[in-house]
Design a protein around this nucleic acid. Sequence first.
DNA 1: ACTGGCACTCACGCCCAACGAGTGCCAGCA
DNA 2: TGCTGGCACTCGTTGGGCGTGAGTGCCAGT
Lengths: 339, 339
Amino acid sequence: MVLDDRKLRILRAIITDYVSSQEPVGSRALVERHNLDVSPATVRNDMAVLEEQGYITQPHTSAGRIPTDKGYRLFVDRLGTVKPLTPAERRAIQTFMAGALDVDDVVRRTVRLLAQVTHQVAIVQYPAMATATIRHVDLITLTHGRGLVILVNSAGRVEQRPIEVPDQADEQLADLRNRINLAVVGMTSKRAIDALTGLLDVLPDSGRPLGNVVVAALLDMMASDPSTRVVVGGVPNLTRFGDQFETTVRPVLEALEEQVVLLRLLGEAGSSADVTVRIGHENPYAGLRSTSVVASAYGHNDDMWASMGIVGPTRMDYPSTIANVRAVARYVGRFLAEG
Amino acid sequence: MVLDDRKLRILRAIITDYVSSQEPVGSRALVERHNLDVSPATVRNDMAVLEEQGYITQPHTSAGRIPTDKGYRLFVDRLGTVKPLTPAERRAIQTFMAGALDVDDVVRRTVRLLAQVTHQVAIVQYPAMATATIRHVDLITLTHGRGLVILVNSAGRVEQRPIEVPDQADEQLADLRNRINLAVVGMTSKRAIDALTGLLDVLPDSGRPLGNVVVAALLDMMASDPSTRVVVGGVPNLTRFGDQFETTVRPVLEALEEQVVLLRLLGEAGSSADVTVRIGHENPYAGLRSTSVVASAYGHNDDMWASMGIVGPTRMDYPSTIANVRAVARYVGRFLAEG
DNA sequence: ACTGGCACTCACGCCCAACGAGTGCCAGCA
DNA sequence: TGCTGGCACTCGTTGGGCGTGAGTGCCAGT
């Protein structure tokens, strides 16, 4: 049986009221606060149907109704009206990002921004930029046989790995650096991997040991996707859960310390350019069964670099949260593309 | 009036019992669990004195006693016996740090380690290494007039700043790079600042604009102490507060997101090579009035680079917490010194 | 198809009494 | 002088009983 228009309106009313009041909502309050033009009794009949179909439930016999995950899902898919950003939110986005120094800084600012506009816990993944090309490779000696391999890509990202170098190998290092730069500058990581392994074959025998060490470090850096790094912020917003401490807040805190879990949460939103909502039990991680995740990939045009999102109670204001996550993701994508 | 030996033993017994049970402790339980060889009545008299002097208090008239901040302070200063690390703790310290890649990685591992062995929230400050010398400066062009200044010091730390560069300035950049490296490699940051400003004067006029930009970026990097960065971990341990959510946990979570507050907490421990304990109201930050901070500087020999510590409830197991913080700080100091 | 009426359910708040852990005080004893 | 046993007292905690009210389901009437 399909739900008629009034039942959908009632479901929407229940959800908006419950989200703002955090209390089960009854038939009487419903007709008073929304002009439904029917009596409480009629609403009760409709609510009985909605409950039968699994969209709402009552915590105990003589209480009002609260939405189920399925109810929220329907709301998000079909009932949510787009809530435009407030001027304050627009302003926050602009001012937060202005003057960011580098990629690190952009990510740090983004996570604070997301947490602030959504009032939830924010998660931001480092941008991957697989299309970035290698710009420069440097080999540097430090002290006591320690050295450093440095890799710079066209997106301005700098990575380094420590290596061991023999004493008095400066000349060898300079030679190796030149060879490597000639071989890989301008390539994507993917192509550079081939070029580097090929390079090893044409090295003079004396340069082999050092060459192996350096190339290994470079391959390691190229293989380790920076987007496996995730930053979290806005944890104090968890206090909005208020009640249910041990049952809800603790698992969430634990999830937030596990990079792997976070990556999985965001990962499933990674392919889509638009906002993904995962409600309650839809979450892959058991500890987040009573929370929702609103996430979005970000990037430039069709090139998605990574994801960002928020974690909050299932009873959240989906329309404005979705609007905010979408706005921040788009803005950060543009911002990074422009450099 | 000075406290006699038995009163001190009673205070110590109250604290250890309260820390493990989290409940007010009465005179009767006290004589049963510790062999005090006196009657409960005697203990009561002594407790009355201890309360009068402000070392303990009772939450309500007919309840047992709990320690005050002043009581904990006396305990930490004079009554705490050193509790040696358990074999498991020793092992944890060794295995956690083994195989760390670079400074970033060491800091990340340290914060997890501290959180795990103390079961509290851990805070670790990046090492400053003011004695490190400049090892290499690089100038790299990216795309669309964007470039990068890279600074490497002898401790293996790599920093970068984005700059704007005119098109087709590769030759100019190479020249500038050579001049800068000749001028500053081997110097501490402090000396390099003079050398760099001097360098500007001898540049050909055509190189001035670019030179200014690059030097400004370098000075900015040298001025920004990496030890202003702080990493936090073990936040789920906050659930040990259990009760008092809004009153205690929220302020702590807020403090943990404010780098400035964290730096201040650690900062006051920075000068001392040994563990510093700050109990309840002794904390500079109002939100942490019901928590204690156990911190220690770390470094090598007399050269202290930065601090680390933990935040937990005032009712914590001070002897073992102090022992653990000390052990981790020393180990990490040694570990970094050896490279 | 909707409405008003009505009996029913049940969480919540309140009061009150019993309980008991713990205290302070005091008189007695070494 | 210092310790002890005894005793009256305090007061938070627990649990049962009860009234209240929000909310429901059902049904007959329009």
